[in-house]
Amino acid sequence: MPARKNASGRKPSARLLLAAEVARLREESGRSLGQLAQETTYDRTYLHKLETGVRIGSPEVIAALDKVYATGERLSMLWELAREDVFPDKYKRFMELEATATVRYEYAAATVPGLLQTKAYASEVLGVAQPGDEQELAELVAARLGRQGLLHRESPPHYRAVLDEAVFRRALSDPEEWQAQLVHLLTMAQLAHVTLQVLPFSSGLHPLIGTSLTLLWQADGSTAAYTENSHTGELVEDASGVERLRLSYDLLRDSALSPRESVAFIQRLMEDDATCETLDRT
């Protein structure tokens, strides 16, 4: 049966479908919002926002609702579809392309790429960039971490990430969480389809300073590029524009440390940070 369309003729979004299902289940159960709040330990105002589609919720609250309503993982599966609605519309075309890409090259100018972030790192970065309430932040973090499944699926893309040294000079506020992020980078670097390189300050100026870049190759040979700074992002699909950015990436990659040297760089950084922490405590 085709999905029901609304008055405008468009199919309802997964976000609205999730909201409608959550509201229907509570109505059929005969529970009040207050009763549901007691059973799930989540605030009734927040639960109301889930039922009206203002929020999509976090995996934790959706799992709690699945448990209360004995729906298995039905709501969680709906949430997996709805979480993409957290991202701006202009970013969804990029997400379509990244889902089918066979090769992905990335340059990170200032922060650890989203595909390589720990939960603590994502929480702090998103909290600084988009300050809001705790529930909204939890949704953004869950959506970002959910995209990391791209690197762990059965046929993952070949992924090369060049991280500017600036990425490593802006640590998390919690030293232990920063160490955990560095350990995670080393762990990811061990995967056969993942290559990590560090671009040291000593490499000098280059065409992508201040701009992060992602290149996506499709199975048919077509390529798209996405450039991003702290305020804007742009998807480039025309061949000439992509080729110019690809050449800039090639020059940058050639100036970076080798994968083995990059691992050694991160290991030295971890040792230096641990030594500094020990000195601070004495």
Results as ranks from 00 to 15, higher is better:
residue 109 A to I: 03
residue 64 A to Y: 09
residue 104 R to G: 00
residue 112 V to E: 00
residue 116 L to D: 01
residue 96 E to V: 09
residue 53 G to K: 03
residue 92 K to P: 06
residue 78 L to A: 09
residue 116 L to N: 00
residue 42 Y to T: 01
residue 48 H to N: 15
residue 47 L to N: 05
residue 126 L to P: 05
residue 121 Y to K: 02
residue 66 D to Q: 01
residue 71 T to P: 01
residue 119 K to M: 11
residue 80 E to N: 09
residue 41 T to A: 14
residue 87 F to P: 03
residue 63 A to D: 06
residue 61 V to I: 11
residue 102 T to C: 12
residue 101 A to N: 05
residue 43 D to L: 04
residue 98 E to R: 08
residue 98 E to L: 11
residue 41 T to E: 15
residue 82 A to I: 02
residue 98 E to H: 07
residue 82 A to E: 01
residue 71 T to K: 02
residue 85 D to G: 04
residue 78 L to D: 00
residue 65 L to H: 00
residue 39 E to R: 14
residue 99 A to P: 00
residue 57 G to C: 02
residue 111 T to Q: 13
residue 99 A to W: 06
residue 74 R to F: 06
residue 126 L to A: 03
residue 40 T to E: 08
residue 49 K to T: 10
residue 90 K to L: 14
residue 126 L to Y: 11
residue 83 R to I: 06
residue 68 V to E: 02
residue 54 V to A: 15
residue 101 A to I: 09
residue 128 V to T: 14
residue 89 D to K: 14
residue 97 L to A: 08
residue 64 A to E: 04
residue 98 E to M: 11
residue 122 A to V: 05
residue 72 G to W: 00
residue 116 L to C: 13
residue 98 E to Y: 12
residue 39 E to D: 13
residue 82 A to N: 01
residue 72 G to L: 00
residue 100 T to Y: 01
residue 73 E to F: 03
residue 46 Y to I: 06
residue 86 V to R: 15
residue 106 E to K: 05
residue 97 L to Y: 10
residue 68 V to S: 02
residue 43 D to G: 08
residue 48 H to E: 09
residue 128 V to S: 14
residue 95 M to R: 15
residue 60 E to Y: 12
residue 121 Y to E: 01
residue 127 G to D: 07
residue 49 K to E: 13
residue 37 A to H: 10
residue 45 T to E: 04
residue 109 A to Y: 08
residue 52 T to I: 10
residue 57 G to I: 05
residue 115 L to M: 14
residue 47 L to E: 03
residue 69 Y to C: 03
residue 98 E to K: 03
residue 103 V to K: 09
residue 122 A to Y: 07
